[in-house]
């Protein structure tokens, strides 16, 4: 019931949370409690960790949304998303992109059912003599294109919708 932080290992999501901090740190992994101590660090990248009495040397580094670790003489890569992004993913975000200002559609590059990657330019609009790219905020499939080329629209108008994620 308490707040969990979500980590992905080999495609499987795991929840890590905190059960207690004193007299020792107790963290939960998927609801199971583990006694944890960080018994110092060799340097910034290498920590000494004790979990349920087992000692581990942990090397750790970051890259985007991944934490790379070497622990127990094996290397792993764990995915992490900040809570807001994770919540958006869980919700499956049925994004509808809307116009920030009135204008006219210059180009439509996607049609319903098209698979798009984050950053793909879906629609180009012109407003106040400026051309503005409407880009996909995430990877997904186009559900509806609400406008056509040369169509004018008002501020707040729906331009394009992506399917909700599973």
């Amino acid at each position: 019931m308490a707040l969990e932080y979500s980590f992905t290992l080999d495609g499987v999501e795991h929840g890590v949370s905190i059960a207690a901090r004193q007299p020792e740190l107790v963290l939960t992994v998927d609801g199971r409690a583990h006694q944890v101590a960080e018994s110092g660090a060799l340097n910034e990248e290498c920590a000494l960790l004790t979990v349920d009495g087992r000692r581990y040397q942990v090397w750790r580094t970051w890259e985007g949304n991944r934490i790379h670790l070497r622990i127990g003489n094996r290397s792993f890569s764990v995915g992490y998303e900040d809570a807001i992004t994770a919540a958006q993913h869980h919700a499956g975000g049925d994004d509808t992109l809307r116009a920030d200002m009135p204008g006219v559609v210059v180009a439509v590059n996607a049609s319903a059912g098209a698979h798009v990657a984050a950053g793909d330019v879906l629609i180009v609009i012109e407003s106040m003599k400026m051309q503005i790219n409407i880009v996909a905020p995430r990877e997904g499939t186009v559900e509806t294109v609400h406008v056509a080329v040369n169509q004018t629209f008002d501020k707040g108008a729906q331009l394009i919708s992506l399917h909700a994620e599973a």
Binding site: L3, D82, A83, I84, A86, A87, Q88, H90, A91, G93, D94
Partner: peptide, 14 residues
């Protein structure tokens, strides 16, 4: 804006 209560809470915490 938040799509879900979970997201609203995450935004609130941030």
């Amino acid at each position: 804006p938040a799509s879900t209560e979970e997201e609203a809470i995450a935004i609130g915490r941030e």
